Simulated assay, not measured.
Amino acid sequence: MRYLNEYSITAIISVLLVIGLFTIAVTEQSTQEDESNDLKKLLVTIDGSIKTLRLRGENSASDVLEGIQSQYNSFTSPYESDNFDNKPNLVKLNQEIDNKLAKLKQSPDKNSIRELRGMIQEMANELGVRLSFIYENSMIIILGVSFILSLIMSIIIKIGVNWEKIRGIRIELKNWQDKLRQAQLKSKKKEIRKLKLQQGEMSERQNTILMTDLKQAILYLIPFVLAWVWLSTIYQDWVVAWLPFNLPWPDFGIRLFSGTVASMGFLGWYLLSYFGFAQIWRRFLIPSH
């Protein structure tokens, strides 16, 4: 009972933390300023130009970059009269961005587009415009949601499953299989017949284990899907994490585009963090599952 109470308290605290994270995210999203939202849309378009370059080639990417020029001009125009005249460094950075865009429209390049992204973020910082909390900290927020949700579900599974019974069934099944294997190797027909009479009972026990595994999978998937639906309304098309190194795409016989993996959207990061933490919690809470 003491352990049950400890797990229950941990689950309650975890739920409160999730609610807190969701509340902060919703509050920040609803109060973000127009210029912050414009910066976010501009960065999303830049990230999209890399996807377009990979999927559709240079011509389509050039069209996207043409749109980036218009978005950038709209973003900086409210600040030009008040800031650019008094800050030569802004004029210089603005010219560098225009030159970079002009070159990219002629010859789109993934690395150069990422350089452009950094330059525009530098310009935004100089103008005092920052992304809202939920986008600046998207990687940590999704990591935190994954950490807490996977912990809650692991605690529920820990409490809700009779793991002593499951372990006993696994041991019984292994012993039966070992005995049957040894009897077959030694051609002990009488013992083989005796063991095979237990096959129906062993199948039922195997089904018990399979159903337990299925229930666990469903329990993990339910909060994952619910949070995914919610997160997708916020982070759709947003690059959550830029990898410190490029990874080759796994070869499944089908390649959507050439190149390597250099970034992760919210779904990739969410999948990795949620199920990664789920495995860690399972090993910690259910060592011999």
Score class of each variant (00 low, 15 high):
Met1His: 13
Glu6Pro: 03
Ile9Gln: 15
Ile12Arg: 15
Ile12Glu: 15
Val15Ala: 12
Leu16Phe: 14
Ile19Asn: 06
Phe22Thr: 05
Phe22Pro: 02
Thr23Val: 13
Thr23His: 10
Thr27Glu: 12
Glu28His: 12
Glu33Leu: 14
Glu33Gly: 12
Glu35Trp: 15
Glu35Gln: 15
Ser36Gly: 13
Lys40Ala: 15
Leu42His: 07
Leu42Glu: 02
Ile46Tyr: 08
Arg54Thr: 05
Arg54Trp: 04
Leu55Ser: 12
Leu55Trp: 07
Leu55Pro: 03
Arg56Cys: 12
Ser60Glu: 13
Val64Trp: 00
Glu66Thr: 14
Gly67Pro: 01
Ile68Gln: 00
Gln69Glu: 15
Phe75Pro: 03
Thr76Ser: 10
Pro78Cys: 14
Glu80Tyr: 14
Ser81Val: 03
Asn83Trp: 02
Asn83Gln: 11
Asn86Gln: 14
Asn89Lys: 07
Leu90Cys: 08
Leu90Ile: 06
Lys92His: 09
Leu93Cys: 01
Leu93Glu: 04
Asn94Met: 06
Gln95Asn: 15
Glu96Phe: 03
Ile97Asn: 04
Ile97His: 03
Asn99Val: 07
Lys100Pro: 07
Lys105His: 10
Gln106Arg: 13
Gln106Lys: 13
Ser107Ile: 12
Ser107Trp: 01
Ser107Tyr: 12
Asn111Lys: 06
Ser112Phe: 11
Ile113Pro: 00
Ile113Arg: 01
Gly118Tyr: 07
Gly118Thr: 09
Gly118Ile: 00
Gln121Asp: 07
Met123Gly: 03
Glu126Arg: 07
Val129Asn: 05
Val129Trp: 06
Arg130Asp: 09
Leu131Cys: 06
Glu136Asn: 08
Glu136Ser: 13
Asn137Leu: 04
Asn137Val: 06
Ile141Ser: 03
Leu143Cys: 03
Gly144Gln: 02
Phe147Thr: 05
Ile148Lys: 05
Ile148Phe: 05
Leu149Ile: 06
Ser150Lys: 03
Ser150His: 07
Ile152Gln: 00
Met153Leu: 13
Ser154Cys: 11
Ile155Val: 13
Ile156Val: 13
Lys158Asn: 00
Gly160Cys: 11
Val161Lys: 01
Val161Ser: 04
Ile169Phe: 02
Lys174His: 13
Asn175Tyr: 13
Trp176Gln: 00
Lys179Cys: 12
Ala183Gln: 10
Lys188Gln: 14
Ile192Trp: 08
Leu195Cys: 09
Gln198Tyr: 14
Gly200Tyr: 09
Glu201Val: 14
Arg205Ala: 11
Thr208Phe: 08
Thr212Ser: 12
Lys215Gln: 09
Gln216Thr: 06
Ile218Val: 15
Leu219Asp: 08
Ile222Ser: 09
Pro223Ile: 06
Pro223His: 01
Leu226Lys: 05
Ala227Glu: 14
Trp228Arg: 00
Ser232Trp: 01
Tyr235Glu: 00
Asp237Glu: 07
Trp238Val: 08
Ala241Arg: 06
Trp242Asn: 08
Asn246Ala: 15
Asn246Tyr: 10
Asn246Ser: 14
Leu247Asp: 04
Trp249Tyr: 15
Trp249Thr: 10
Arg255Gly: 04
Thr260Asn: 12
Ser263Thr: 10
Trp269Asp: 00
Trp269His: 07
Leu271Gln: 04
Tyr274Arg: 01
Tyr274Asp: 04
Phe275Asp: 01
Phe275Pro: 01
Trp281Pro: 04
Pro287His: 06
Pro287Tyr: 06
Ser288Pro: 00
Ser288Met: 05
